[in-house]
Amino acid sequence: GLTEEQKQEIREAFDLFDTDGSGTIDAKELKVAMRALGFEPKKEEIKKMISEIDKDGSGTIDFEEFLTMMTA
């Protein structure tokens, strides 16, 4: 499992990506986040990433899903 410290770091990354503070990361926010990390993702790639992570089919990534992605 994760230490509380690791969870906190992932939470901070999540909050950075969640620019509108909605508690979820949408495609637009993910794209901005990827760019910040030096990637140039295409729209299809973003969609694919979200569909792989987005277990509940909401079209957005919540913290639990993000946590799973970061620790996979």
Rank of each mutant, 00 (worst) to 15 (best):
L16Q: 08
E29N: 13
R35Y: 04
S58W: 06
E65Y: 08
E9C: 15
L2M: 09
I50D: 03
K28T: 08
E4Q: 10
T24K: 07
E40H: 13
A36G: 05
E65G: 10
R11L: 03
K42R: 10
A27G: 05
D54T: 09
E52G: 08
V32R: 15
M70G: 01
G21Q: 07
D56A: 06
L67C: 04
P41Q: 05
F39S: 02
I46C: 11
T68G: 11
A36L: 13
E65K: 11
M49T: 03
D62L: 05
F63Y: 05
T24V: 07
G38K: 01
K55P: 06
A33G: 06
E44M: 08
G1E: 12
T3H: 04
A33S: 01
E4I: 09
G57D: 07
D62C: 09
T19G: 05
G59S: 07
A27H: 06
E4C: 12
E12N: 12
L37D: 01
A72S: 11
F39E: 03
E65D: 09
F66M: 02
I25W: 02
F39P: 01
L30W: 03
K48Q: 10
L37K: 03
R11F: 04
E45V: 14
R35T: 09
M70C: 14
F66I: 03
S51F: 04
M70A: 04
T19F: 13
Q6N: 07
D62S: 15
E40A: 09
S22G: 04
D20K: 04
M34L: 13
L37G: 04
E64F: 10
E65P: 00
I46Y: 05
V32H: 15
E29G: 07
M49C: 13
F14Y: 01
E64R: 04
K7C: 11
P41W: 10
L30F: 05
E5I: 12
T60G: 06
I46V: 07
M34Y: 03
A72T: 09
L67H: 01
E52D: 11
D18S: 03
F17P: 00
A36H: 14
E40R: 06
L2Y: 10
R11Y: 03
K31Q: 12
M70V: 14
D26K: 09
V32G: 15
T60P: 03
E45P: 02
L16H: 07
S22M: 05
I10K: 01
I10V: 06
G21P: 01
G21R: 09
I10R: 02
M69N: 02
T19R: 12
K31W: 15
F39R: 05
D54S: 12
K28N: 14
S22T: 11
I53S: 06
D15N: 14
G38D: 03
I50Q: 03
S58R: 08
E5C: 14
E9L: 14
K48Y: 02
D26Y: 04
T68C: 11
D18Q: 03
E5D: 12
E45A: 10
T71I: 10
E29W: 11
I46D: 04
G59Y: 07
V32Y: 13
E65H: 07
G38T: 01
E52F: 14
G1S: 12
M34I: 07
S51H: 12
M70I: 13
M34E: 02
A36S: 12
G59M: 08
D62A: 06
A27Q: 05
K7P: 01
I61V: 05
T71C: 13
R11M: 03
D56M: 09
E64H: 07
F66V: 03
K42L: 13
G59V: 05
F63L: 04
F17A: 15
R35L: 08
K31D: 15
G38Y: 01
R35S: 10
K47F: 06
I46G: 02
A33P: 00
D56Y: 09
M69R: 04
T68N: 14
I61W: 03
L37A: 08
S22E: 02
K47N: 11
M69C: 14
D15I: 08
I46T: 04
L67R: 01
E64C: 09
K42W: 09
E12Q: 12
K42F: 09
L30V: 08
G59L: 07
M69F: 15
K48T: 05
I25A: 00
K31G: 11
K43M: 15
E40D: 15
T24I: 05
R35M: 08
E29T: 07
V32K: 15
D15Q: 07
E29M: 13
E4P: 11
G59K: 09
L37P: 02
A36R: 12
M49Q: 02
M49I: 14
E40Y: 15
T60E: 10
E40T: 11
G1F: 10
F39L: 10
D15G: 05
T60N: 06
E4F: 10
S58A: 07
K42H: 12
K55V: 10
G23R: 04
E64T: 09
T3Q: 03
V32F: 12
E5L: 09
S58Q: 06
T19H: 13
G57F: 12
F14C: 03
D18G: 01
D15C: 08
Q6I: 08
T24D: 12
A27N: 04
D54M: 12
E5V: 11
D56F: 08
V32T: 13
E40P: 03
I46E: 03
I46Q: 02
G23T: 03
L30E: 00
E45F: 13
G1L: 10
D54F: 11
M34K: 00
S51R: 06
D54N: 10
L16V: 06
E45Y: 11
T60D: 11
R35Q: 14
D56N: 11
A33K: 02
K42I: 11
E44I: 06
K48M: 09
T24S: 11
D18P: 01
T68P: 01
K43E: 15
P41N: 06
K31M: 15
E12H: 13
I50V: 06
F63D: 00
K28I: 08
E65S: 11
R11S: 02
I46S: 02
D20E: 04
K55F: 07
Q6V: 07
L37N: 03
G59R: 08
L2H: 07
L2I: 07
G59T: 06
S22N: 12
D62I: 04
R35V: 11
